[in-house]
Simulated assay, not measured.
Amino acid sequence: MTRIVGERDLDATRFDAEDARAALRDIVRTRRFDERALALQRRGWMSGYPPFEGQEAAQVGAAHAMRGDDRLFPTYRSNALQIARGVPMSDILLFRRGFPEYHSDHDVPVFPQAVPIASQIPHAAGAGMAANYRGEDWASLVCFGDGATSEGDFHEGLNFAGVFDAPTVFFCENNGWAISLPERRQTASESIAIKAEAYGIEGVRVDGNDPLATRAVVADALERARDGDPVLVEALTYRRGAHTTADDPSQYRDGDPDLPAWRTRDPLDRFAEWCEDRGIVDGDFVEAATEAADEELTEAVETAESVPRPDPEELFDAAYEDLPPNVRRQREEAGAVADDHPDSYELDR
């Protein structure tokens, strides 16, 4: 049975003042990360970047709903969720510079970002099945966009979860666009949440620009999942920027007249105003949180820049135990290029 929550009334959501302050603080932190990362990419500091501006509230709300031992399966646009979950900003920046994804020794139970669309969904269902086999009491939360629901991996993952009662929450950030394709062009379904019915699991829809409502819905879903009832959560949000830094949304998006104002409004402004109106924060809160985030980002960038660049020959170390002759030649050629042109492997700072 699909339960449609829609736009939530924040006053009716379970929370206390510190919950709201923590959510607003992380929305500010992740917004500043997104802005800084975009600026760094534009100057050549990293090769590419997928902006998430507009989706911070959905991701922060979901992160704050998770227990410490719950497993996170992120997609490439889940940076806000990872940061709010505890992944160091420097790890995400290093990944975008071509380094191994988790450079630090943090203990957040999070799997690698999935760049192929929807490939992480069966992984999350399988991990949930493993938790059942081992008698462990944690749930998987897997993130994806609305476009991923048109991929076979989505259907396979939900089908396995439904059949085997895998403790998995499928968290769809419906930002209205599957790259350049609007939702109405990539699915004829009434909603994403209603697709859960085909697999015998619950589907629920929530205002993804409301971090407290998202937290409440995802927390309920995780509890149900741990009891053997997987859930599909559709968070209605909006991608305010490009799909990636290689994308030009002006070529396909000329406003979104079909979407309500609450969905396209900046979730940071909206939530900050709500908190101020109720005396939860004062007028200096966002400014102070921004300053703290900028300090954190400066340290993260310095950490990322301090990591020595890898030897290009290391690309070949994990490919074969004994390198075939053609791969051995490629390794030697890569080393020779690095020796002759050492500056060519340095990223512009």
Rank of each mutant, 00 (worst) to 15 (best):
Y76A: 13
A125W: 02
D227W: 00
A246N: 13
T187F: 02
R239I: 01
V327L: 15
N209T: 04
D284V: 01
A235K: 02
G203A: 02
M46G: 05
D146W: 03
E183S: 14
V87N: 10
A161Y: 07
G241C: 03
S191P: 07
V142F: 00
A216H: 05
D284Y: 00
L158K: 05
D248S: 11
D16H: 10
R349A: 14
A235L: 03
E314L: 11
H155C: 04
I121H: 06
Y133C: 02
E291A: 15
V218M: 05
D91P: 07
S191F: 05
F285R: 09
Q186L: 15
A161V: 10
D294K: 00
F144H: 06
T298M: 01
G48E: 13
Q251M: 10
R97I: 11
P182D: 04
V233L: 01
R185W: 10
L38C: 06
A225E: 00
A58P: 00
L181R: 14
V327F: 12
M1S: 11
L38G: 10
M1F: 08
Q113T: 13
A161K: 06
F271I: 00
R77Y: 04
P100E: 15
R21Y: 02
E234R: 04
G54H: 06
G335S: 10
G128C: 03
A12L: 15
D105C: 08
G98S: 12
G279Q: 12
H243I: 07
V5R: 10
T75A: 14
T2Y: 13
A288S: 13
G86M: 07
N79G: 03
F33Y: 15
P109F: 10
I27R: 05
L93Y: 13
M66P: 03
P88M: 13
F33P: 05
A193C: 04
K195S: 01
P74V: 05
A124V: 01
E287I: 08
A139R: 02
E223Q: 11
Y199I: 06
P122M: 01
G135Y: 09
L93H: 12
T244S: 15
F171P: 09
L315Y: 12
P182F: 10
P310S: 03
A318E: 14
T187A: 04
D26C: 05
A118C: 07
L268H: 04
F33H: 10
R205H: 09
R134D: 11
Q113P: 02
L268E: 04
D107Q: 15
A23N: 08
V327M: 12
G203N: 02
A131R: 12
Q120E: 05
E332L: 11
A300S: 08
R85P: 06
D282Y: 08
E223F: 01
A127Y: 14
T290L: 03
R205N: 13
R25Y: 14
E305S: 11
D266Y: 00
R205L: 12
G147T: 06
T290D: 08
A166V: 11
S180Q: 13
W138T: 03
P324H: 02
L259V: 01
Y199C: 06
P50N: 09
F316K: 02
A292N: 08
V286P: 11
G176Q: 13
E299V: 09
Y199H: 12
D311F: 01
N159G: 11
T187H: 05
L24I: 11
D339W: 01
F99K: 14
E276H: 07
E346L: 15
N174D: 10
R253S: 05
